[in-house]
Nucleic acid binder design. Sequence first.
DNA 1: ACCTGAACACCGTTCAAGT
DNA 2: ACCTGAACACCGTTCAAGT
Lengths: 185, 185
Amino acid sequence: MGNSRADILAAARGILAEHSLADLTMRRLATEVGVRPNALYWHFPDKQTMLAALADDIVGRVRVDDGGEWDTALAGATADLRAALLSVPDSAEVVSSARASGLSSNDLSARLEQRARAGGLPAPVAEGLATALVQLTLGLTIEEQTRAQMERLGVIGPSGRDFTGEFTRAVRVIVDGARSALKPR
Amino acid sequence: MGNSRADILAAARGILAEHSLADLTMRRLATEVGVRPNALYWHFPDKQTMLAALADDIVGRVRVDDGGEWDTALAGATADLRAALLSVPDSAEVVSSARASGLSSNDLSARLEQRARAGGLPAPVAEGLATALVQLTLGLTIEEQTRAQMERLGVIGPSGRDFTGEFTRAVRVIVDGARSALKPR
DNA sequence: ACCTGAACACCGTTCAAGT
DNA sequence: ACCTGAACACCGTTCAAGT
C-alpha cells in the first residue's frame, strides 16, 4: 500500500545502518517494508538493480565544486564522497559493486575528470587523476567499513589503523602528481 | 583421499577460470574435488578463510624488485599485480575481499611501502604511494573482470573501455606525485 | 498498479558418526 | 587424519493468481 522505490531504498539504508550488508537480503528487506519477498520484484527486476539504485542514492549527494582551484575542488569532492560513504555502513562495497556492474548511472569519476579538465589539466592527466581518486576512496573505505563491521560483531579487535591519515596521505600523493603535470621541473 | 589444501585451492582456481566467482560455492567446489561439501570444513574453518588462502596464493606470485630505481620497481610490481590478477578471472574481487577481511597474510602494500622508503621517499609519501597504487589496481581490475564476466555471459556488449590505458595513466599520476616530493619545484 | 501463495533450485555450516 | 549422512536455517527468483 503506497510502497514505492523510495520506501524500499530507505528500508535498505536502515538495514545497513542497524545491521550489515550480509543482512540486507531481499527477504529481510521485504519484511522490513511489510510485504512478501516477491513483491519487491515488482519494483526492481533483481537485487543487483536495487543495490545500484541505493548506490546512486548515496553517491548522488556528492557535489563537485565548480568554483575555486581544481585541486581543492577535487580533494574536497573526494573527501565528501568518503564522508557520504562513511555515513552508511557497508555502502562503499555497495557503490563499488554497482560501479563494476555498470548498473550505476551516477558516474562520479566522469564529473571529477570534467572538473579537472576545466581546471586546465591535460586530458590524460585529468583521467588518471579521477580514476586514482575514486578507486582509492572506494577501496580504502571498503576496508574501513569491513573492519568496523567486524569490530561491531566482536570477531576482531580494533585494527589500530589510521584510515583518515592513510586516506589524506594517498590523496596528497595523487593530487601532487596531477599538479606536477602543470608545473614542470 | 589425499586431498590437501593445495588440491582444493587448485580446484577453486579452476572454477574461476572456467566459470565465475558466483559459481565458486563450497558445494560446487566439493563436487569438483570429489568430496561432500562438509568435508571441506576439515581443511578450512569457513569459506571466507578458503578465499583468503586463494588470494594469498595469487598475490604471493608478485615480486617487488630490490634493485634499480624506486619508481620503476613500484610501477613494475603494480603491473605484475595487475597481470597476476588478470590471469585468474574474478580474482581481484577475491583479493580485495581478503584484504578487507584481514584474513590475508600477504600484505603487498607493506612491501611496496618498504621498497619506496628504501628508494629514499619520506615515510608519509611512501605510505600514500603504496596505498594509492594497491587500491587503484584492485579497484580497476575488479571493474575490468566484472565487465569481462558480463560479456562472457552475454548480458552486456563490449564496454569499449581501455582499461590498460586507464591503469597506465593513473599509475603515472600517482608515481609522479611521489616523485614531486623528492624533486621540489 | 501492487501484492500474495506456493514453489524451485539452490546456499553455508554443524554435528555425530564412520574408517 | 579425513570423510559421509543427515539435517538446519536460510537464500534469490519465478509464476500464476488475487484485488
